[in-house]
Amino acid sequence: MPAPERYEAVVVGAGPAGLTAATYLGRFRRRVLVLDGGPSRATWIPESHNTPGFPRGIGGDELLARLRDQAEEYGAVIRPGRVERLESVPAGFRLEVGGVRFEAPTALLATGVVDRLPDIPGLEAAIRRGQVRMCPICDAYEATDARIAVLGSGPLAQREADFLRTYSPDVTVLIVGEAEDAPRDAARIALSDLRFERDQVVLSGADGETPFDYLYLALGCASQAALACALGARQDERGDLVVDSHQMTTVEGLYAAGDVVRGLNQIAVAAGEAAIAATAMHNRLRRA
């Protein structure tokens, strides 16, 4: 097998956190590789209005394209491929992607989370249109005074509905499944009762059709932390990676940033954590 390709830093993930870290590391004049394991969940954003510096909004695809261009401007190498193995070696870390190996003394995981999605026909298209949403912190302002439904299976749906009532008094909780701790005032539905018509979400039932302007999903998400956990990195009770004030996990030299770290899944937070992690990685390399 060929010798591993060597870099000073490897970033796993090409979402806002990973690409921001790559820009910082490139500007620190480090040889940095970004491994892009597939589309970031940011690609689902029709238009973000809370991303700093874009008062008139920016779509997820355009934002990622700009971040990628910026990282490459400063020398970052971006390669497609999902990391199949991450292990500790005397030189730091070895990663394997499609039979190709890479080594670096530092590594950053920006692998994000995967949303738990209901099985509803047309869901992905509705997400891209903005009918279905997953982050009230991101876009509830644009739903001010609208008719909102929150779909969930337990207390998370109630918490999200309470948050959304800051923006609209017309918020309905829709519960799927047999959650024992479901809110008493929630409506129980079958997913087959939901459909998307033009710019509305329609719930068909015994009482006729109830239209909503937006449907928020409150089904949670799964952290993409398996690579770090295989090395013994610690997770908190939510499944997020535990990091120190410099974004280093409990594995020496392994850093993490973005949604894989904590529950406030925000582009601005991911960028800030990436800047902290990249600076710590640079200083670690400098001391070495």
Rank of each mutant, 00 (worst) to 15 (best):
A187I: 14
A190L: 12
E197P: 00
E73H: 12
F93D: 04
Q266H: 11
P105E: 09
V83T: 09
V10T: 06
D236Q: 09
D240Q: 11
R66F: 02
T166E: 13
H246Q: 14
P2E: 14
E96K: 06
D170E: 14
E73G: 01
L117Q: 10
L108F: 07
R6I: 09
M281D: 05
R198G: 13
A125S: 14
T23Q: 13
G37W: 03
V12N: 06
L203S: 07
L285F: 08
S245C: 04
R128L: 12
I45F: 04
R184P: 12
V10K: 01
L191W: 04
Y216Q: 11
Y7I: 03
Y141K: 00
E124Y: 07
P121T: 11
A42F: 01
C229K: 14
A182M: 06
L191V: 10
L35K: 08
H49G: 08
F28I: 01
A275R: 06
V114Y: 00
E237V: 10
E180W: 01
Y255F: 15
G81C: 09
R262E: 15
R286P: 00
V12W: 01
E252V: 05
P211S: 13
L63Y: 06
E73D: 11
E8T: 08
E87Y: 02
E142N: 07
D207M: 05
L108N: 03
A22D: 05
V100Q: 14
D119L: 12
R79Q: 14
L217W: 04
D162A: 15
L63S: 03
A149N: 11
P118D: 11
E73M: 12
S245D: 15
L33S: 02
A228Y: 05
L86H: 05
L231I: 11
F54M: 05
Q158N: 04
P105Q: 10
R184K: 14
P16F: 05
S153M: 12
V32P: 01
E8F: 03
S88F: 00
C138P: 08
V77A: 14
P211T: 14
L64C: 03
A143R: 05
E160L: 13
N265W: 05
E237W: 04
S88Y: 00
S245G: 12
T20C: 07
I137V: 15
R284V: 00
T51M: 07
A149D: 11
P183A: 15
N265I: 03
D185G: 04
R68D: 01
L254D: 02
C221G: 01
Q200M: 03
E72I: 03
E96W: 02
C138Y: 06
T43R: 13
P118L: 11
G272P: 10
D61M: 08
R66V: 02
A149M: 08
A257Y: 02
E209H: 08
T106Q: 14
I120T: 10
Q224W: 00
A42Y: 01
V176N: 06
G253R: 07
E87I: 05
L227S: 09
G263V: 10
L25Q: 05
S192G: 14
F102Y: 15
A225D: 13
E178Q: 13
G26F: 02
V34F: 00
Y167I: 05
L217D: 07
G253Y: 06
D185F: 01
G18M: 03
V242R: 11
V100R: 15
S40E: 02
E273N: 07
D170Q: 14
L254Q: 04
G253S: 10
T111D: 08
A230G: 15
A190I: 00
I148S: 06
H246T: 13
Q200E: 15
A42N: 05
A140S: 15
P4T: 09
D207G: 15
